[in-house]
């Protein structure tokens, strides 16, 4: 308190953790990982009406090495599962996963041999967004919940992976 009153309005004090979390949550760059129908709603979320860029997701990075958020949008099938894990492994820490849609969260309406019954069998998921497909606003709600989750993260915590 004393430091701030001495210098007026040009200085604020906070903790490094808060600044780091604020920076991370405000510039979540998703990796392009559109699989099926949910990908179209993800594209709509990034398009002109439900502009996702105002939440910090300015670009969808094609290379996973430049992304920190993987939005698994669509059903994950047997052939795609190892690819998904490889993309997740290529992303640098800190990274988060949003499982968008019913098929990514739990297999959706396809309870059969071909669909992985929930992407959390392969990668750790932070936020599940239900819907078939979820509205763009639902996806944004999921991203905002993820932002709240990130703002509670501690710098020295270990993440299970």
């Amino acid at each position: 308190m004393g430091l701030e009153t001495a210098f007026g309005d040009s200085i604020i004090t906070t903790s490094i953790e808060q600044v780091a979390d604020w920076g991370r949550k405000s510039s979540l760059w998703p990796a392009l990982f559109g699989l099926a129908c949910c990908a179209i709603e993800m594209m709509a979320a990034g398009a002109s009406r439900y502009d996702l860029a105002r939440f910090g997701s300015e670009v969808f990075r094609a290379s996973p090495r430049q992304a920190d958020l993987m939005i698994v949008s669509g059903r994950v099938c047997q052939k795609m599962a190892p690819v998904l894990r490889q993309i997740y492994d290529q992303m640098p820490e800190p990274k988060w996963v949003i499982s968008m849609g019913a098929c990514a969260s739990s297999g959706g309406i396809f309870n059969n041999y071909a669909v992985i019954q929930g992407v959390d069998k392969i990668v750790p998921v932070d936020v599940y967004v239900p819907g078939c497909p979820p509205r763009p606003e639902a996806l944004m709600d999921g991203i905002m919940k993820l932002q709240e989750k990130i703002s509670r993260e501690r710098l020295v915590a270990r993440r299970a992976s």
Binding site: G107, F110, N111, N112, Y113, A114, V115, Q117
Partner: peptide
């Protein structure tokens, strides 16, 4: 999988 006597699989 599409054979009639093949189960549907899943959970």
């Amino acid at each position: 999988p599409l054979r009639y006597d093949h189960p549907i699989g899943g959970e």
